[in-house]
Computed example of a mutant assay.
Amino acid sequence: MFKFKALFIGLLGILLFAQFAFAGPTYERVMKTKVIRAGIMTDSIPGAFYNDKGEWVGFDVDIAEAIAKRLGCKLERVAVNNKTRIAFVQQGRIDMSVANMTHKRERDKSIDFSITYFFDGQKFLAKKGKYTKWEDFVGKKIAVQQGTTSEINVKNLLKKLGDPNYEKNVISFQKESECFQALKMDRVAAWSTDSTILLGYAAKEPGKYELVGDFFSDEPYGIGLPENDSDWRDAINFTLQDMWKDGTYMKIYNKWYGPNTPYYFPLTRSIEMWP
């Protein structure tokens, strides 16, 4: 009995030590290992996606790579989706989530966020020439990604516009590519999410789709970070600000959203800068 207790206490001690060591400050561990594990999407055009050559590319990919380079680290890319990007931060499986994630107060209860590094808003994407305004979608099926702020925003808008079946008319899918496929096959009248994502998919088939109506939400993107780790949060914030100050940010932005790209999206705001 004594041996069993001793063994149990020993194993418990090892587990507690391992947990303590793993849960240490992110900044210290990253500076020691020189590796940053970043959660990045895989089908969010042009934020982060696989191109025709099978390369993992996009705005978020370049932002994450630039952050790692400035901190003298190697970037380890970890595929995430709308369901795992927060959980992976909480579980310590990634050090930051660079995954077109809107900073919401509700999400801030679970993880911390950097300053806003991208500014977007939500719209509808539909086949060209079929709809002209929000009201046209009352009573129609709308595709959204499951578990996103976009899903909530569309339901609230349709309810406000008087759609008695707004709950049933919002159809949830797991992936952005599935939403686009549903639109292509006329299973839904429109797909609604952040406008830059819609622009990305519409560019795959030029001239067939268009954005409808004005923005009906603000979507400020933040980098998801572990809770209560101010040194790491400061490192990310300072790096983003330095990238803005020396032009690195705009170089990356124009590469993906500039006037000479299929995803043209004029920048309307500036990153928060601290003196």
Results as ranks from 00 to 15, higher is better:
residue 80 V to W: 11
residue 55 E to Q: 15
residue 60 D to V: 14
residue 64 A to Q: 09
residue 74 K to R: 13
residue 55 E to V: 07
residue 72 G to M: 03
residue 80 V to E: 08
residue 60 D to M: 10
residue 58 G to P: 15
residue 53 K to Q: 15
residue 79 A to D: 06
residue 83 K to T: 01
residue 54 G to L: 11
residue 55 E to A: 11
residue 80 V to L: 11
residue 73 C to T: 09
residue 55 E to P: 12
residue 83 K to N: 03
residue 69 K to N: 05
residue 78 V to D: 07
residue 83 K to Q: 10
residue 81 N to H: 08
residue 74 K to H: 08
residue 76 E to T: 08
residue 66 A to E: 15
residue 57 V to P: 10
residue 68 A to R: 07
residue 75 L to Q: 02
residue 67 I to F: 07
residue 60 D to H: 13
residue 79 A to M: 11
residue 57 V to G: 00
residue 54 G to C: 14
residue 54 G to D: 05
residue 79 A to E: 10
residue 60 D to Q: 13
residue 59 F to Y: 15
residue 82 N to Q: 08
residue 69 K to S: 01
residue 56 W to F: 04
residue 69 K to C: 02
residue 53 K to Y: 14
residue 62 D to V: 14
residue 76 E to Y: 07
residue 55 E to K: 15
residue 75 L to F: 02
residue 57 V to K: 11
residue 57 V to F: 06
residue 58 G to E: 01
residue 60 D to E: 15
residue 79 A to N: 09
residue 80 V to I: 14
residue 64 A to V: 14
residue 82 N to K: 06
residue 69 K to I: 02
residue 70 R to E: 05
residue 82 N to M: 04
residue 53 K to L: 14
residue 53 K to N: 13
residue 72 G to S: 03
residue 58 G to V: 12
residue 56 W to Y: 01
residue 71 L to E: 02
residue 57 V to I: 13
residue 65 E to D: 15
residue 56 W to A: 01
residue 54 G to E: 04
residue 65 E to V: 12
residue 77 R to M: 05
residue 54 G to K: 15
residue 54 G to R: 12
residue 75 L to S: 00
residue 54 G to P: 14
residue 60 D to P: 12
residue 75 L to P: 04
residue 62 D to E: 15
residue 63 I to H: 03
